[in-house]
């Protein structure tokens, strides 16, 4: 099958505002051929100056992530004919949220720099702890990461805040925090709860959606938040926001926006919101600032919550 492959090329040679341009290659594809194979054919036969990273060809080394028809994919794990038939085109671009080195190769600061920030190795406990199959299961998904950068490339939080640790590093962080053998969980969680850590995530679910290895970074982040609060590390807006939600559910069974704003931001910042709140009030958008009626069966809610709190007290933190 004959296909035109369009590649967004850019060769900054150190010049940051290099303008990318599209180049087309007409190629022949056989059934079963991956996008990477086609690129290799182009490089060997037509244009050796075209650059893309590659190594394993089998979706495990993490080298070849790129944007294929708009979404991040591993070039070696994407069948070209299938993709072409689905999208009607093959357009290859470097990953978003990363600076381009050349053509399809991007700088790898995320995830490597972030990786260092999360203390990327196990801190053994003093005593030997044996791992069970269940313990393994708890961190299994986060262990599958191949550091391909796909998640970071689509992360909405990272798009706006370059200092955010990002989903790949946080998935890795859970790999340690979730490990029964780890001896410094609290210290880790404390660091992760600081600025640009776990609470920067805006829960856009892009990371989990596009991860080629089903690592589900968002789940890792949710687990880190859960653990951090269980350790009582809650002196930050993120944790306060969550806790306020829990209080609100306990009180009225539902979201009490006004009370949550107050609890999350504290008195002073909430007052700062008053002029704005008044504007919203004019449009009927400020919900019962004082008393929001509780749902029917609020007792049930409280019973369940009490029971869970009891359970939690028995769960050991280590």
């Amino acid at each position: 099958m004959e296909i035109t492959v369009k590649v967004k090329r850019c060769n900054p040679q150190g010049n940051a505002d290099c303008k990318p341009s599209w180049q087309s290659y007409d190629i022949k594809a056989e059934v079963g051929m991956s996008v990477l194979e086609v690129l290799l054919d182009v490089i060997a036969g037509v244009d050796p100056s075209l650059v893309c990273r590659r190594s394993c060809r089998s979706a495990i080394c993490g080298s070849c992530a790129m944007k294929i028809n708009g979404r991040p994919l591993l070039a070696c794990d994407t069948q070209i004919i299938e993709e072409y038939e689905k999208a009607g085109r093959i357009e290859l671009e470097p990953l978003d949220n990363h600076r381009v080195i050349k053509d399809l190769a991007v700088f790898q600061e995320p995830p490597w720099d972030e990786f260092d920030k999360i203390i990327p190795y196990l801190n053994e406990k003093d005593k030997d702890v044996a791992m069970t199959a269940e313990d393994e299961h708890a961190i299994d998904a986060s262990q599958k990461c191949i550091m391909c950068g796909s998640c970071n490339s689509v992360c909405n939080a990272l798009e706006m805040e370059k200092n955010y640790l990002g989903p790949a590093a946080l998935a890795k962080a859970w790999r340690f925090v979730g490990d029964v053998r780890e001896g410094k969980k609290e210290k880790r969680l404390d660091r992760l709860s600081q600025e640009h850590g776990i609470w920067d995530c805006v829960r856009c679910v892009h990371c989990t959606e596009y991860c080629p290895k089903d690592v589900a970074p968002l789940s890792a982040i949710e687990r880190l938040r859960d653990k951090a609060m269980a350790y009582g590390i809650d002196d930050n807006h993120g944790a306060k926001h969550s806790t306020a939600m829990v209080d609100s559910i306990r009180r009225v069974g539902r979201l009490d926006e006004a009370a949550m704003t107050f609890k999350t931001l504290g008195l002073l910042r909430s007052i700062g919101m008053i002029p704005f709140g008044m504007k919203m009030e004019m449009h009927g958008k400020m919900p019962h600032p004082v008393v929001l009626p509780a749902i029917d069966g609020i007792d049930e809610v409280r019973k369940i919550m009490d029971k869970r709190e009891e359970e939690k007290k028995k769960e050991e933190l280590d």
Partner: peptide, 11 residues
């Protein structure tokens, strides 16, 4: 809204 999940998955 996910916030509860952050607080306590089982709850």
């Amino acid at each position: 809204a996910g916030l509860l999940k952050d607080y306590d998955y089982k709850l």
